[in-house]
Each structure stands twice: as C-alpha cells, then as structure tokens.
Amino acid sequence: MSKPTRYQTAEVKATITDMFAQSSAVLARPGPATFERFERRGGTRHALVYVGLAAVVSALIAAFFAIFHTDVTVIGQLISRLILIPAQFLIFTGAVYLIGRKLFKGTGTYPEVAYTFALFFVPLTILGTLIGIVPVLGWLLALLISLVMVAFGYFAVQSSMNLRDQGSAVITLVLAGVAHWLLGSVVGGLLTALFYGG
C-alpha cells in the first residue's frame, strides 16, 4: 500500500469543527497567505458538506420568517435555498477553476478551489440570510455582505489557483461572476416560476 500524500492525509482529518475554526481564521485575517494555510486541509466532499450546512441553516431561517409574509411560501423558501445555495457555489467555483486554469494557466486543483471558497462562503451566506430579514436596511447590509464576498473571493482566487498576478485574479473573478449570474439567473428563474408564479 502506498504512503498517503499530504493532501490525502489532511483530507481525511477535516471535520465541521475544523472548518468552523478555519473560517474564523480566514474571516479574522483575510489574505492569500491565510487561505494557503488551509487549502489542502479538505477537499470537494468537505466543501459540499459545509455548503450543504449553510443551505440548511439559511433555508430554515428564511422559511421561519416566510411564515410572517404572505408573498412567499415556507416550502418555496426551504426548497429554493436548499437548491440555489449549493448550485451557486458549484457554478461559481467551477467557473473559477476552469477560467483560472484555461485562460491564465493556474495550477490549483478544483478541491483546493472548492475548499478555499467554502471557508468564507458558508459563514457569509448564513450572515447574509440573517441580515436579509432586517426591515428597511436589510438590502443595504446584504449588498455590503456581497462586497465582502468579492474581496474574500479575490484572495481565494489568488491562493487556490496560484494566480498572484492581480489582473489575472480579478479577470478570473469577474468572468466567474458573469458565468454565475447567467446560469444562476436561469436556475433562479425556474425556481421562482415554480414556487412564486401564478
């Protein structure tokens, strides 16, 4: 039996508790160096479990507050968030990986991209859901969360795809954002028609 690589050994040890701690470190000290510390401590499976947790928590929060609004349904909030949050994550991280690799010869792997992005995506998604329920200022605070995600995404692209050139990292992020928006609009439109249409 061959000796496990550093990545394989680290991936086995990743737990939700570890990911929470790593998320805290990333949020406290954002930058490529912080992401580099953690990018090989988990893989795609761990990232998806973590994102799934964010989807469940966000869905439950949104469903609870949907009880008090007549224009949305509890089931609609539950199902749409359980589908949209993982779908958005997969679309965006997949685009980052493909664009960074094909256009700029990035040397990162998809598991590194997925795990790195999950570390900030999960806590900020949950925070965004909580902020979204705040009357009047909710949209403004949600916009602020989106801008924070962009900043963390920039550092994550530099780290996970090894794109230290600022231009390459920015273009990768922008193009991934466009791909995310286009595909997300289609999926979101279908879900909206299904749950909120007449």
Rank of each mutant, 00 (worst) to 15 (best):
V113C: 09
S168L: 02
V174E: 01
L147Y: 10
F35I: 02
M19H: 01
T70Y: 03
I67T: 13
F92G: 02
F92H: 04
H46E: 13
V186T: 03
A63N: 05
L53T: 06
G108I: 03
F120D: 04
I61H: 00
S168V: 05
A118H: 03
Y154C: 05
F117N: 03
F121I: 08
T15H: 05
A118L: 05
T5Q: 05
G177W: 05
R164T: 15
I171W: 04
P4H: 11
V186E: 07
L163E: 02
Y154H: 05
D18G: 05
A193C: 14
G189D: 06
S160W: 07
G153T: 12
F195T: 04
T44L: 08
Y196G: 14
L140W: 08
A169R: 00
T116W: 00
L98T: 12
I99Y: 00
D71F: 08
I83L: 06
V136M: 15
G100T: 10
L48F: 08
V72P: 07
G188Q: 11
F152M: 10
S159Y: 03
L82Y: 08
V56M: 01
E39K: 07
S80M: 12
W139A: 15
V150E: 10
A14M: 13
F92I: 03
F117A: 03
L82R: 08
V51P: 02
G106K: 01
A142C: 08
L140H: 10
L27H: 06
P32F: 08
G94S: 14
P32G: 10
L82I: 15
A156H: 04
V148L: 12
A21N: 12
A156E: 05
G76D: 09
A47T: 04
P30I: 13
F35H: 06
L130F: 11
E36N: 14
F20I: 15
P4K: 08
L140S: 10
T93V: 12
L183F: 13
D71K: 11
L98G: 11
I85G: 03
T172V: 07
Q77N: 11
R37P: 04
L130P: 08
S159E: 05
L98A: 15
E39F: 07
V56A: 04
A21S: 12
L53C: 05
T192I: 14
L84N: 13
V26L: 08
L175M: 11
V56D: 01
S80V: 09
G128R: 06
A176T: 00
R41A: 11
A54P: 00
G31F: 13
P30M: 15
V12W: 09
T129C: 10
A193T: 14
L82V: 12
P111I: 07
L60N: 09
Y97K: 02
L124P: 01
G184C: 09
A54H: 00
L183G: 09
Y154Q: 02
A142H: 09
F120W: 05
V49R: 01
A114E: 07
A47R: 03
A33C: 12
H180Q: 15
G197F: 13
Y115A: 01
S146I: 15
H69R: 14
Y196F: 15
T109F: 14
V26N: 02
A66G: 05
Y154R: 00
P123K: 07
A62F: 10
F104Q: 00
